[in-house]
Write a protein that binds this DNA or RNA. Structure first.
Lengths: 194, 194, 194, 194
DNA sequence: GATGAATGAGTATTCATTCAT
DNA sequence: TATGAATGAATACTCATTCAT
């Protein structure tokens, strides 16, 4: 609170909204609660954001941009496809856990965005999905991964487990984010062995 | 509609609520919409259900009971642990797809249940989780599955992909429910190879 | 108030809205003021009326129907065209004064109706206008009225003065509604002398 | 727009406000819309005008001063009272049509002025009304106009039709402003024939 | 069993105005 | 002169639930 209180108003609003949306869900969080938590008035919120929906969209955008950047970096590296896929699979787990509030909102409240913004988000997610799938297909073509399962399905298999993290992962649990990431990447790579 | 119109009132309400909750989400669906879709009045709804929350809880219960029964049946069969796990993993995929509206509600609206009912649901899900985990541990102890990854994490890995089905599976897509189930069970079993 | 308090809720709301819209204008009157004046809650208002706009529309409809009926009756009588026009011209003045609140709302707030409802009202007013114009044209064809001025313009001339009544007429003034009506009808008829 | 963009800021604001008030009504037009249309900021508006109300008052003042000047000029001419009344009656029609946006605002939004400013405007209109009435009374005393109708009522009769212009006159219609003016003045003069 | 009128607390959003810069 | 962030009160409308019939 004392930390956040020093931030500029828009960031303060975004931080408050993120916490509340993650805890209570988008529909259950009122604009009034957000502005109270941020220590500003409604007028200030609507000065910076066009609507409650805009806040949600901005939270999505933040996480999407972060993960897309990291995937692009990892996938573009000079290394074996196995190594790149393992790193990509593990990295998305770590960054999801590091931004667990954002992730929880992402998977729980996406369908509460306006139709128009939902379309936009879906397009960005598709780009992410396709980049990831390309890695798998590269390995399948090279024979280092089995092609027993269509690459699309493999992507959905892995991302299901990433989404699910926000349902069960607790920071106070026995496994560090990196350990969880290594395990989940390991499962994926083993499932792809020819 | 003509089918549903013949059902007894409580079932008609449940069917209408399921469709609407799946399409719009729990919070976005008003009691008025439900009773209109079911062709009854508010008084009738409150005659059979104590609250809007009760409807949601009943929808959960229906799916949970179904999947628990099927898991118990499969896990109790006389067969190798590999065969039983493969069947259990595939079965939950098929029944999830067969009840995709219920599943969508399950994963999207659970946190909108009252705290008390949420606790109850969580307890039932834990029972399901534990039964599934026991199968994996059995295989690990017998050496037919690797124990590189803790059984708990494996369960979460698989159930992540099951939850995720309601985000991407479309009946009009190229894969039948059984085909998807076989692929996902295959991935799980391959990941568990020693 | 004691009178109105006994009326059914919808009429009570309409009476309260009429008084307030006439006094303060549509935009300056809040739904809260209306329900307080009617002694009910907002929920009750929205139970009977879909929107604030609906109240306004209903007030219009009431006056329009009344005046259309009376014009049709007068114009359809067996009498000279001069006599029928004089009666019609005077009658609309009297009923406007008798419903001065409705009339004030009519001329001051029509453009605050939703576009869709405005269209509807305009169509109904056109019907009224045309019936009135037909009387004038009948007299012009028969030579009892001059055709120096197009009938359309004559109708607008007269209705201008009718609309204007709500700006200046005061019940406590020196002229009774009937006296005002006779004078205004007299002016019209004199202006139409060949 | 390019024309207006060159005007000094206060005139630009007044021009934008006039257009918007005429189109949407005073209450439906926000200060934000006005400053955006004028290409300035809120601070600038409040630098030149004390309030939104002031803009409306200034628009009134502009039209009132114009019409008062013209009436004084016409009424003071050396000519028969018939000729002066005809010219005055026609002139107010032409200047109303030439400033139809102002006129629309005048008749539609006057009651949205603050009480104090409304009083001021009413006093100025009364002066106008009285000057016009004096012409009619002059003709009645001289026997060139009938005194069958009180002069006050005759003024209201004519001004009703002037107010009404903003409801029906369209520049693209068949009659020019001068033609409409001649017709309406003709009706008035015929109605006053002894 | 079932109705539907009524409640009352809640929702997101708008807006004229102020004021430190 | 002019900015634009911020206020605070108001706005129309929604909704789960109750209850007399």
């Amino acid at each position: 609170m004392t930390d956040e209180a020093r931030l500029p108003v828009p960031q303060r609003l975004l931080a408050a909204a993120t916490r509340l949306f993650a805890d209570q869900g988008y529909d259950r969080t009122s604009v009034q609660e957000i502005v109270e938590a941020a220590g500003v008035t409604k007028g200030a919120l609507y000065h910076y954001f066009g609507s409650k929906d805009d806040l949600l969209h901005e939270i999505y955008g933040r996480l999407l941009r972060l993960q897309q950047e990291r995937l692009d970096a990892v996938a573009g590296r000079e290394a074996s496809v196995e190594s790149r896929l393992r790193d990509a699979a593990a990295d998305v787990v770590v960054t999801t856990i590091d931004n667990l509030d954002d992730a929880r909102i992402f998977f729980r409240s996406m369908h509460q965005l306006s139709d128009e913004k939902q379309k936009q988000v879906r397009a960005e997610r598709r780009r992410y999905h396709e980049r990831f799938r390309a890695l798998i297909e590269e390995g399948q073509r090279g024979g280092v991964f089995t092609d027993a399962t269509p690459a699309d399905l493999v992507v959905d298999y892995h991302f299901g487990s990433v989404h699910h993290l926000s349902s069960w992962y607790r920071p106070e649990g026995p496994l560090s984010p990196q350990q969880v990431a290594d395990h989940l990447a390991g499962l994926l790579l083993r499932a792809l062995r020819p």
